[in-house]
Design a protein around this nucleic acid. Structure first.
Lengths: 264, 264
DNA sequence: GCAATTTATGCGGGTTTTTGCAGGTTTGTA
DNA sequence: TACAAACCTGCAAAAACCCGCATAAATTGC
């Protein structure tokens, strides 16, 4: 589409045909996922009404989404409709599959809560014999469905927000044991800052779990890679395995491989 | 710290369209389970009022859950609603009403599990401030819905059929405390044999609870009056209050009144 | 080629949307 | 119980929108 390439750098008054102009607009929308009416009317040198009419026509044809002040691409707008149910559930199922493969008979496993852990609980093979320990009530509910695993609930005061048990008792209980694996659903990870979260109580629990396990496994959708939250859980040096829905050799994950983490 | 998640998708944070902004917010909520209005208005560079209006609109559309100071993801806050097809639910609601009247602010209350206890949890007045302790996962789920009460989960191994935590740890934890009330949903009661049950683990828990409480309250539908189960929990002399859906002066209950139990 | 006709564009004015701010009220927490 | 943060309500300014109309541009018919 080099046909349009020069227009925004060419303030010369050009006579653009209507079809041509609309093609240009559509191109811009697809390229940047959004356009502003004001910007377009400067670029093409037509009145704002004309731009508005163009946007309206393109919207009527279903090519773009018209909004107050400009337009959005259709792909951008998908966020709104895909927001039903658990966010990114497909991706989390993939992650759960990879994580479930790590678990072997006889293992003792500490887990956090969160929707990814719920998927893990659902992905456990039916004949698995292992012991799962958690303070997350939704996670325990899911583990209870499994026919053969042993489930241990960490007791203490219940946090209504995070639906986990929190407090000194819970942390002391975690410290008492030495688990084979600690599997955490994490909310943010960054090479420099490690994993971080935004709930103080959850962080306390996760920190204790990391210290009480021989191997630390972190589960997260790739979207949360290279993001930071306010409260620190542990550094990358404390993490043994990182699991996302992407392939281990995805460039996004290279820094973590370089940092010595086993990426699955 | 202006490095929070999401900036990578929002390099040009100036002049964001309304829909675009809302999509960004929704994305953040789904990603992190919660957002703060203050954080968002810094990130997007708009006034807090605008953020609040956006959150309100998204909440009206059912996309998120608005709370004081920010918003929560819908999937995270999902309520596990127990089926309402409970046997004799009407009668249990009556029992729950009577039992709830016994509870006063500041009390510490031990409870068992069971559908009658679930009804009790639902019947608690909204402004009540008390502490409830239980090893029953369904009961804890119900207590969590209440806005002001404190909830303490007794930890230990989870019994999959009775959905309670059982074991030495759990019993030791109960022994540590001295509750104002112990409220038991019971499966059988008889003047001669006292209360009995058919699950060994449940009985151990209930016995410990009876011993750790100043007053013992038994809840049961009248149908279970004068029935016997294999395993003994406690004698009638250990019971302080008995609550059924019938009137206290019902002839069926007279033997228990005569035995010194306060019948409600 | 030229007039008639259709289409596209720009403009004026009135309406709606969006946004920030001032104020008073509610809420959560120490 | 006191206090700060968050909330709501109303308001006003700016931006965007819509409608009708006049004019310019393109197309068509002859």
């Amino acid at each position: 589409m080099h046909l349009f390439a020069g227009f925004k750098y060419n303030p010369t008054k050009l006579l653009m045909l209507k079809k041509e102009r609309q093609a240009y607009i559509l191109h811009q929308v697809n390229l940047h996922n959004k356009v502003l009416s004001a910007t377009l009317c400067q670029e093409i040198n037509v009145s704002e009404d004309t731009i508005r009419r163009d946007l309206q026509e393109l919207a009527d044809e279903g090519k773009i989404i018209k909004v107050h002040g400009g337009a959005l691409s259709h792909s951008f707008h998908e966020v709104f409709h895909l927001s039903n149910g658990v966010y990114s559930q497909d991706k989390k199922k993939i992650i759960a599959q990879k994580a479930a493969a790590l678990i072997q008979n006889g293992m003792f496993i500490l887990t956090s809560g969160g929707t990814t852990i719920i998927e893990l609980a659902r992905a456990l093979p039916a004949q698995l014999r292992a012991t799962f320990m958690s303070g997350s009530i939704p996670a325990i509910l899911e583990y209870m469905q499994h026919p053969t695993i042993d489930v241990i609930m960490i007791g203490d005061r219940v946090s209504k927000n995070s639906k986990i048990t929190i407090g000194a008792e819970a942390i002391a209980k975690i410290r008492e044991i030495k688990a084979d694996l600690c599997i955490l659903g994490i909310n943010a990870i960054d090479v420099r800052h490690g994993t971080t979260d935004n709930d103080w109580d959850v962080v306390q629990l996760k920190k204790a779990m990391v210290e009480s396990a021989q191997k630390v496994v972190c589960l997260t959708i790739a979207e949360k890679i290279n993001t930071i939250q306010p409260i620190h859980i542990c550094g990358v040096q404390d993490i043994d395995i990182l699991i996302t829905e992407r392939s281990p050799d995805d460039p996004l994950l290279k820094p973590y491989v370089d940092a010595g983490i086993q990426v699955l």
